[in-house]
Design a protein around this nucleic acid. Sequence first.
DNA 1: AAAATAACGTTTCTTTTGAAACGATATGCT
DNA 2: AGCATATCGTTTCAAAAGAAACGTTATTTT
Lengths: 156, 156
Amino acid sequence: MSHAPSSPPPELQLEQFLPYRLAHLAERISQSLAQIYAREFELSIAEWRILAWLHQRSSLTASQICELTDMDKARVSRAVKSLGERELLARQRTHRDQRSMRLSLTEAGQALMAEAIPLALAWEGELVDALSGAEYRDLFRLLNKLDARLDQLVEA
Amino acid sequence: MSHAPSSPPPELQLEQFLPYRLAHLAERISQSLAQIYAREFELSIAEWRILAWLHQRSSLTASQICELTDMDKARVSRAVKSLGERELLARQRTHRDQRSMRLSLTEAGQALMAEAIPLALAWEGELVDALSGAEYRDLFRLLNKLDARLDQLVEA
DNA sequence: AAAATAACGTTTCTTTTGAAACGATATGCT
DNA sequence: AGCATATCGTTTCAAAAGAAACGTTATTTT
């Protein structure tokens, strides 16, 4: 705990501090979209993410969803339970491993996503209207780079 | 609720769905950084944000912090209380308005931030090492555009 | 000036979250 | 085979978060 004040106090501007800016923007976007999911379909963000991944991959276990979404297993378990009760997804014990559950969308789940996805994409469209096509691609490229860098930092 | 299935089912790929990508990346970054704050300084994210804004603006009320950070007033109130108990910030009733509190860093709060900020900036530096200077500026430009667009959408 | 309304920040109450304990199944070791 | 260890998903328990009610002070209306 050296308190040598020799070096000048460093400057921090939150507006230009990337972690803060990203967190803030992502939070605003999530909130806006969450409202739509909640109002139109009575889905939480966790539920929406699970349905979206199942729509894309057609069959996943709970632990795979945990990895894909970075949500912890309790949260996933609860969301899956709720979706199961609404019969939007089906669970079936795996043959090879009786511990895990194979999750997949039911007809109703498919139908709901067929309605929900266009809304989500339309909303995203309105948002990214702010960007040109090139900017949009750039943005993803930059996000990918940061993601990759984060992988490095975490494993290091 | 037209269920005319004339148009083909729209495609959604979460990896290329901006709200999801942003939320996911921001969450990973927040978590990494939160660990540092917690381990080194026993600060929550809410507490860190408040200290950082006070470092920058030197004096703010709780409701101003709510606006700046998009945190609700209960969360801010609790974080402020905790920081006050640790004597990292001081509260003083405003003269013009006896309801609000003028918050500012104490000496100890300044000292803590003098230690914390370099760590935060160093961590950010490691992260954005993934980007060139131009890419870094581009990223902020794009984030700014999205923020502005979001303002439009919200007020509309 | 009095009464009604609104704003600031705290507290209470309810819901959501994450960590750890758990039952059940699988795997690895001797 | 038998025992230890690890993994899957659920549940329990404790901490964190948000919504609404509150006390207090300002502002607006009549």
